[in-house]
Amino acid sequence: MENFKNLLRTKKKTVISVIIGIAAFIICNILIKSGVLGRQGAGLLVPICINIMLAVSLNLIVGFLGELSLGHAGFMSVGAYAGCLFTIHANLPTVIEFPLALIIGGLTAAIFGVIIGLPALRLNGDYLAIVTLAFGEIIRSIINSLDFTGGAGGLKGINKFSNFNVAYIAAIITIVVIVNLVNSRHGRAITAIRDNIISAEAMGINVVFYKLISFVMAAFFAGAAGVLYGHHLAILKPGTFDFNKSIEILVIVVLGGMGSIPGSIIAAIIITLLPELLRDLSDYRMLIYSIALIVMMLSNSSPKFADFREKIASKFRRKTRKEAA
């Protein structure tokens, strides 16, 4: 009986999520078609979907596996270059070519996920963070020095295949796969490794396998996001995928809350929109962004602010109770 109730509850949650997903899709499409968003607003929808994919996939490593990764832009760039080189050189119909490119980009990034996942087995904490950072920088300087990637000048002549519908579907697939992974037996194994690696190992969890699978999954979706990104901008430059890009994704994950998928989605939307909303302030944009970042971090975790928030909350509660009485 208890089991059945739980099942109903999870079903209800799933149904609500599906409804929200479909509603968001329809609303966005109506807004685009009716021109309410304008060209600039519509142009932001694809980057939002891309950032959601990146943030949700990074959340698997940072939030659920509990390892700090500073090289997510590296996975993205590998996938982007693989996918875009494929669409440039293969002459298939778009309907076949673009999904294939997404998969190829994802798989190439996943191979690199294995490569970077291997040191992750021996290292942890800050040492692993610096290895992922180093990996991102290595990828960037190799792409910079190769000929067939266009070098520092960038890869040009990419078709603009990315549109909102494709990006939205890709983002939804990312979210569904990662949420299902996290809620499965494997996901519980991954969070067990985060909480206490020694106990997890003692319980018979294959730490090597689960660390690798997390990196591979995250890399796959980051690579696919990279392919979308390349086909959105129609040009790829190695400079875009630097340390700052990785940090931007990490900021989204931390801001949304580590280990919270809805948090990542909301934060991805905010962080993508914030620089655009601040566009009029031009030079002051980054200054305000940085101050906002510091203040958000301080207010989220400083005990003084928590007290302050508690006070306000309790006042509100008292008020509502009085009104109820």
Binding site: M286, S290, L293, I294, M297, L298, S301, S302
Partner: peptide
């Protein structure tokens, strides 16, 4: 103020300070 916060929060704050100085 972040002395007892998680290392990641401190890291992001440090990055925020870096952006601020730049």
């Amino acid at each position: 103020p972040l002395r007892n916060a998680s290392p990641l929060t401190v890291l992001i704050t440090a990055i925020g300070v870096s952006y601020f100085l730049q």
